[in-house]
Design a protein around this nucleic acid. Structure first.
Length: 268
DNA sequence: AGTACCACCTGACGGC
DNA sequence: TGCCGTCAGGTGGTAC
């Protein structure tokens, strides 16, 4: 699931469960997931410390320890956190497990192992080194306009590029373009200033809604694409078109040809 | 610089 | 029931 809204919910979850407790034990069940650090060094760095706060940048989450160093979490496509006491409650694919003195556990679960867990002395420089663009949810309009102004290519590719701005993935880029009414293949360079404004406002709205509703599709207001990503389904927004599935930059892309014609010469 | 493709992984699902 | 291809909300490398 993990795109910006999911990450924000993970962060809130972490804040509500994993802070201000001494870490008694760290279990690395899949060393392959560790980024540029050995299991031994990771365990030594973290054991005996405690998480004091969290920070999120795009799709990265940082658990900041009291000594200002940080554990880095990236969730790939299937990662999530789970906090529990009873071992019976342990999820199926725990890759890294933090056990607190209280006896509670914070598990990093990731079935497909496409994510990573790391450790850094300085989250800010880590973000720089990853070449991540600014977080899309902590972005002023002026900067947004400036960043898009430097891009070429298709809208969908531009928004999914984490080096331009960080946080949107396949699902929420589709959702954004769905609500703003733009074809995913529209060229960024064809956007007018008004359209960039519309994209910015729509992006904030979509992300805000997703976070507020805890990324649960059933809680989303009517008219959202999420939960209706199915070819041929009646468009939940305009009711006129049927949802179409295409590939854009080799990712499955769902859109409504009836109300997302904006920016395309031909018709869908 | 943008795009298309491959690779990294595991699991679910549909067709035969 | 079993096998097989395809697909999945991410990212990094490579080649054109």
């Amino acid at each position: 699931m993990p795109e910006l809204p999911d990450l924000e919910v993970f962060r809130q979850y972490f804040d509500a469960t994993g802070l201000h407790q001494r870490i008694q034990q760290v279990e690395v069940r899949e060393p392959r997931l560790l980024e540029e650090i050995t299991t031994d060094r990771f365990r030594t760095a973290v054991t005996g410390h405690q998480f004091e706060e969290t920070r999120r940048h795009g799709k990265y989450l940082f658990g900041i320890l009291e000594n200002e160093t940080a554990v880095i979490f990236h969730f790939g496509m299937t990662g999530f956190l789970q906090y529990y006491q009873d071992p019976e409650m342990e999820p199926d694919h725990v890759r890294v497990l933090f056990t607190f003195e209280s006896g509670y556990n914070l598990a990093y679960d990731n079935m497909r192992m496409l994510g990573k867990v790391g450790y850094t002395n300085d989250p800010e420089s880590y973000i720089r080194n990853q070449d991540l663009g600014p977080d899309v949810f902590n972005l002023e309009y002026d900067e947004f306009e400036q960043l898009l102004g430097k891009k070429r290519g298709m809208l969908k590719s531009a928004f999914m590029d984490q080096n331009t701005m960080a946080g949107l993935g396949n699902i929420y880029t589709d959702e954004l373009l769905f609500h703003a009414g733009f074809h995913p293949k529209m060229q960024v360079t064809d956007l007018t200033k008004d359209q960039i404004h519309l994209l910015f406002d729509t992006m904030r709205e979509v992300l805000r809604t997703a976070i507020d509703e805890k990324v649960n599709p059933e809680r989303f207001p009517p008219g959202y694409l999420l939960g209706h990503r199915e070819e041929g389904e009646e468009c939940p927004k305009c009711g006129r078109g049927r949802i179409q599935k295409i590939k854009v930059s080799s990712r499955s892309t769902y859109f409504c040809p009836a109300h997302q014609g904006e920016g395309m010469k031909d018709e869908g």
